[in-house]
Design a protein around this nucleic acid. Structure first.
Length: 391
DNA sequence: TCTTAAATAT
DNA sequence: CATATTTAAG
């Protein structure tokens, strides 16, 4: 596509980005159009989540960018720039326009490099600090600093998608970047995010494993809790309340997901969800399915997975949206989804047939209440460790 | 180039 | 305090 102009700049990457600060833009429209709710399982209680704005902004932004080659990209920041000062871009003669940032401007070209030269050379661990100061959201015009990338849900989603597509183990920044098609991100951004993603994932998996072990134990040692013998009909080892479909959208709370602390696991977010099928379910695992713990507490027992408003949500990674973007296009996640109905259906079918959690046919997801009761009966503590996070 | 870890910024 | 970015180094 039109892509961006070549950056003449000496530097290699472009770094720019969209930032989003937030403000409020709650244009209901965007929200509506974009279904975050869907993404998050219809969490919105109906109102617009105050926070979502960000995303919406983002989306909005990128949408704009579609056209014009160069300028297109710059709005990102401006997103809110509207109010702010977007002018910084003094794109002077240079092309630094680097993509979308809008925000960034550029000033002196040399900065980056400079830093390291100075010190690194010499010695050991230079302590670098300072240097940047006033950037914050508004002005970073000076040249360097990059603005923090806001990993919005959308962005993260794409990230995850890319990672999965590549295979968790093979995902490397450059590839991810490619797949994501968001050129405003730099490899560093990705790397950084990836770093965290992995680390987080590691923890989560560990926890899951733990939980699984637990439940496994429970089963072995007479999953039947006291209650079992004491009376009622014996309960079998406790049929994990698994569900046959993708885990229900967790009860994310709108306000919790906002700017999206991607890792802040309220209870679990999409990223997790994406992970589930693959990692948690070894497919050939001799062990019982990883405990159902994670979602037991789920408020709604939504058998019918909500109509996938956002097709791509459950979409297997391969169907990911045509992101034909070549580096150099809009700065924001292109609208995902334009897959044909069929492909979507296929995709869904695909997903459904895959590894999700094995659910005995015919077994319908228990209602929350029943689950609770069961748990209680078995003397199982209410909230499994998995969910305990909180800070 | 990728990964890690740690420092630092916000 | 948590997350993101930057750096240095393997």
């Amino acid at each position: 596509m039109l892509a961006l102009s070549p950056l003449t700049n000496a530097k290699d990457e472009r770094e720019s980005f969209s930032i989003s600060e937030f403000s409020e833009f709650s244009d209901g429209n965007f929200l509506d159009s974009i279904d975050f709710d869907d993404l998050f399982g219809g969490v919105n209680d109906g109102d617009v989540l105050p926070d979502l704005e960000m995303d919406s902004e983002v989306l909005a932004e990128f949408s704009t960018s579609a056209s014009g080659g160069e300028e297109s990209e710059m709005n990102a920041t401006s997103s809110f720039a509207s109010g702010e000062r977007a002018e910084d871009n003094s794109l002077s003669g240079k092309e630094e326009v680097t993509e979308g940032s809008g925000l960034i401007s550029h000033g002196p070209a040399e900065e980056i490099v400079s830093k390291r030269d100075d010190e690194s050379v010499g010695g050991a661990k230079p302590l670098r600090k300072e240097a940047q100061k006033g950037r914050k959201s508004s002005k970073n015009s000076q040249g360097k600093r990059k603005v923090k990338v806001d990993w919005t849900a959308e962005l993260h989603r794409r990230f995850v998608q890319a990672v999965e597509q590549l295979g968790v183990d093979k995902a490397v920044p450059s590839r991810i970047l490619e797949l994501m098609g968001i050129d405003c991100l730099t490899r560093h951004n990705i790397a950084s995010h990836l770093q965290k993603y992995r680390s987080h994932r590691k923890h989560l998996l560990a926890r899951e494993a733990e939980a699984a072990t637990w439940s496994q134990r429970r089963q072995m040692y007479g999953g039947a809790a006291p209650a079992a013998r004491s009376g009622s009909k014996s309960i079998r080892p406790w049929i994990a309340p698994t569900m046959g479909f993708p885990p229900p959208m967790p009860p994310l709370q709108p306000h919790l997901i906002r700017p999206l602390h991607v890792w802040g696991h309220p209870s679990m977010d999409q990223s997790l969800m994406h992970m589930w099928p693959n990692h948690l379910v070894p497919a050939r695992s001799p062990l019982p399915p990883p405990a159902a713990v994670a979602w037991v507490p789920s408020p709604h027992p939504p058998p019918p997975p909500q109509p996938p408003p956002d097709p791509s949500f459950w979409l297997p990674h391969h169907l990911r949206v045509p992101n034909s973007h070549t580096p150099g296009t809009p700065c924001f996640p292109p609208p995902l989804a334009t897959a044909s109905k069929e492909s979507i259906d296929a995709a869904i079918g695909d997903v459904m047939s895959k590894p999700w959690l094995p659910l005995p046919i015919g077994l319908k997801p228990p209602s929350t209440d029943s689950v609770m009761v069961e748990l209680q009966r078995q003397g199982i503590p209410k909230i499994p460790p998995t969910c305990s996070f909180k800070s």
